[in-house]
Amino acid sequence: MYKIVKKENLSTNIFSMDVLAPLVAQSAQPGQFVIVIADEKGERVPLTICDYDKEKGTVTIVAQSIGCSTKKMAQFNEGEYFHDFVGPLGQPSEYVNEDINELKKKKVLFVAGGVGTAPVYPQARWFHENGIDVDVIIGAKTKDLIILEDKMRKVAGNLYIATDDGSYGFKGMIPSLIEDLVVNQGKKYDLIVCIGPMIMMKFVCIMTKKLGIKTIVSMNPIMVDGTGMCGACRVTVGDETKFACVDGPEFDGHLVDFDEALRRQAQYKNEEAEKNEKHVCTCHKGGAN
């Protein structure tokens, strides 16, 4: 059992939790993920690691309660326990092993969509701590869904905000903002790291391919075990089939077949809806009893 030592609501339906898991915290690196099982009957839910504190032994996860399992997780409070918490899984971000001096020569832009802002924050902070200021874009549908703005401002070089409805910052989609920065404002980037909903990453990659900027994306497909066993997370990268859990989750976004990935992500939609109907209280802690 894994204790939730801190819970914070970042917006109406986005929550952050620090979970006590010392072994995971000890080994965690940027770019990796964990799997959380809320209670005995819960699913194995993969979530990107948003932060970790090796001294306190905690790992921070952030999720948006949309599906059944994230809604169930949202009902857990400080002091309560998740049934299982396993990780860190996947490969760490490539830059972790790069030479800092080489990295300093690069101009990096982080692009965060919605709840994807949470895993971007520690990465931006990692660069900041290593003496590199990166630019960051936070995008969301509307102002209420912009999270971690203040924290991000402290570690980012330039911080740009975009909302689809124009309620805050740049009005429009993230790819248009990237185009505006590069084409109209003359910004130059050597590398873009993009984390967010799959559909957002797809359109960012279409834009950055046009602009000729290398883009790393963090894939979040369906998974069961997260250790390479099930193959549910198959993603086509270039000509190859990769398992996002062990080969990723980060890939060269210009090589990812996003249309296939989007389609595969919806694979269990009907079954999930059916499960929801059959046991109406599935989203509650402790299952249907």
């Binding site: 009957k41 819960g42 699913e43 194995r44 059944c68 399992s69 169930k72 069961v224 075990d225 066993m229 099930c230 193959g231 549910a232 269990y268 079954e271 999930e272 059916e274 499960k275 059959k278 046991h279 599935t282 299952g287 249907a288 009893n289």
Partner: peptide, 23 residues
């Protein structure tokens, strides 16, 4: 699907029982 995925969902995650969340 791989047989591993199909069987893991059913055996380990008990997808065949309504009250378990895994589809």
């Amino acid at each position: 699907f791989s047989a591993n995925e199909f069987l893991t969902r059913n055996n380990l995650m008990k997808a065949y029982e309504d009250e378990y969340d895994t589809p």
